[in-house]
Nucleic acid binder design. Sequence first.
DNA 1: AACCTATGCAACCGCCCATCT
DNA 2: AAGATGGGCGGTTGCATAGGT
Length: 339
Amino acid sequence: MGRAPCCDKANVKRGPWSPEEDAKLKSYIEEHGTGGNWIALPHKIGLKRCGKSCRLRWLNYLRPNIKHGSFSEEEDHIICTLYLSIGSRWSIIAAQLPGRTDNDIKNYWNTRLKKKLLGKQRKDQQSSKKSGLIKQEMKREVLEDFKAPSLCMSMNLYQSYWPTDFPNLILTNPDHDHHQEQPLHAKNQDPITSFDDQYPFDTSPNQAQLFDQNHEKPISTVNYHPQLQNTPYNLVINGDQGVNLFQEFNNYPFGINELVYNNITQLEQFDHHHHHHGLVGGLDNLINGSNCTSSSAESTPTWGDPLVCPPQMMLTYDDCRNGLPQNCPPDHHQPRRFQ
DNA sequence: AACCTATGCAACCGCCCATCT
DNA sequence: AAGATGGGCGGTTGCATAGGT
């Protein structure tokens, strides 16, 4: 037995909204608000529509400041980067794009952006084959699944942006509930339980530095909100909003996991380096999940400390295909999976 | 011009979860 | 404490239209 429907399906209108219906809904909400009850709203204003349908119409089309029309390159970049990070959590992605709705972004991704990336993937595959660079038959069944190579492609396509546009990446414990106290809202000290709870922040972000490959020159300052640490929303993007970078990792067939596994050495370098700078948040935990297994008492990382992910951890599509990072010595980088 | 196919997108469906009673 | 309710979300559907033959 499923649950009862939210409205009488037989007596509500469905399908496209007429201009009259739009006008009725818009003028009512602008004057009175939603009243906090979408189900009751259509009855109040004499609309033969389901409350959910009204809500959707308002949120996706009628409310002010909705941006229609084509997406910019910058928006493409944000969508791809976030999809790579968190998967199809459209509402969170939409929060990064003012005026865009989750539905818009979802449609845009499914109908165009995905194909754009897929197109590039196929092109690269062809050119790689021609030049004889592909020497391994890579996990056909996995590659046939669009998702993994598309993710690799999005990394490949956008990795050049990473250092300037997306440096502020911080990992904290994805299993926070079992290791740390529940984070509290800065204002009222209530536990942070939802994304909305975290904004606005009362305090300015903390800062950490991101160093170059030789661990000498600082190349970027990393902002992070301490309130976000140990929450499910702990990737800080440009010091603005946060999401959990690795929450969706296990759902990806291979792209993301390859990214992580194949860049262990680079991560180890950064891990080691940042231990010295007191910034590190646990490579072991990144690899092993929530188990904190580091043996060194002095350097044992604790969740809540930021792990700064370097731009160099990005893989190209060929890396994913071949299981070898292109910019690393081969003796250090045997594939950790599919051996 | 007529038909077919692909594409884009608005809208719906059903599940999950927080809140209410 | 437990069931009911409603909001929010991601996945999917179906229609209108553009493009190709």
